[in-house]
């Protein structure tokens, strides 16, 4: 791997709430290189979005507290950088898109105006030039009639169009990293295909690194180079998609792959679910957080959190005491 562009090191973000301490991110590390796509997969409450929000400075402190960690962008730690430096990076070098574009777009301003404003905030550019660039961007993300649509308000856009507009805004300053938090979850599947197609095309044109945060293992299989599997605020497994899907070394990954109904296969007799419920981030079980649901669990799993260690090769990491046993299992993804 080349020099990473953005890397997170041993990040711990804990939320102090009435009910207790929510360990949303608890010792998470990942990195992404230029032009790469990293998938971050997890269920709701796994903390999968929190590290990205921390990169953007969107985690409110308090209730949150950074217990440890660094967020390095081109070697600069965003957590200790001064405000001016952070502002110069966030939005310009790194930008983010969200599941619901309606909450991210301001309903009282015209779409074109909002995009132009973002451009002007970072670049010395006249209003007319910024407007023209906004129209170009809307055209580039596949909005028909961009000149006219730029003068419309967000509510006049359909869900898919809004997501396109938000992508246009996020790409306005040609960022090096795009954080995409469930960008297609609220969309229909044919529109999802359009949006993913657009992201890939833009990535190819501009060499943007994309962090794709989702719960959909299919989406990651189709679009990511590497994948990070999160469980209960911790990293369960990290590796190339082929390693993780075909040679999973964490029982949670294996369990997820086994439990999925597949559209491309004739009906199997029965799905094989993961037993039990995902834990609350306030009461994460001691030892490995997955141990109460894990078919491989032994005493050591209940006592000791397994370290995230290389398995097979240096780039395939898993946090499991028994990953050797998993190596003997046939992955359900292999077809």
């Amino acid at each position: 791997m080349t020099e990473p562009l953005l890397s997170i090191e041993d990040l711990r973000v804990h939320f102090h709430t009435d009910a207790g301490v929510v360990k949303a991110v608890d010792g998470v590390s990942w990195s992404i290189g230029p032009g790469e796509t990293l998938g971050i997969v997890g269920e709701s409450g796994s903390g999968k979005s929190v590290s990205a929000l921390a990169v953007m400075g969107l985690v409110e402190v308090p209730p949150a507290r950074y217990e440890s960690g660094r967020i390095l962008f081109k070697g600069r730690d965003l957590l200790t950088a001064d405000d001016k430096e952070r502002r110069a990076i966030r939005g310009k070098e790194i930008s983010m898109i969200f599941q619901d574009p309606l909450t991210a777009l301001n309903p009282v301003f015209r779409v074109g105006h909002q995009i132009a404003e973002v451009i002007q905030a970072h670049e010395k550019m006249g209003r007319i030039a910024a407007r023209a660039k906004a129209v170009d961007l809307l055209g580039e993300v596949g909005i028909p009639n961009p000149r006219q649509r730029a003068r419309e308000y967000p509510h006049q856009f359909s869900g898919g169009m809004r997501q396109r507009a938000m992508i246009a805004m996020a790409l306005a300053l040609d960022p090096l990293v795009l954080l995409a938090d469930e960008p297609t979850t609220a969309l229909d599947v044919t529109v999802q295909a359009q949006i993913m197609d657009l992201l890939i095309r833009l990535q190819a044109d501009r060499g943007t690194a994309i962090v794709l945060i989702t719960h959909d293992l299919g989406l990651v299989a189709g679009h990511a180079d590497r994948v990070l599997v999160m469980y209960a605020g911790k990293v369960a497994e990290l590796g190339t998609i082929d390693d993780v899907y075909y040679r999973p070394r964490h029982p949670y990954t294996l369990g997820l792959l086994k439990s999925l109904a597949r559209m491309d296969q004739r009906r199997s007799d029965r799905l094989q679910p993961i037993v039990g419920q995902p834990p609350s981030l306030i009461r994460v079980p001691p030892g490995c957080p997955f141990n109460p649901r894990c078919p491989f669990a032994t005493d050591i799993c209940r006592q000791e959190m397994p370290p995230l260690e290389p398995k097979d090769g240096p780039d395939h990491l898993a946090a499991c005491h028994h990953s050797d046993q998993l190596a003997l299992q046939q992955s359900p993804a292999a077809s």
């Binding site: 295909a193 359009q194 299919g218 990651v220 299989a221």
Partner: peptide, 27 residues
Amino acid sequence: QALISAVPVPDPNRERARRRILVSGDV
């Protein structure tokens, strides 16, 4: 056909081999 081709499957090799039939625009 468009609907089926748009659904991603959790299998990287299959995903690489599939072709998508994209529909344009909105409903």
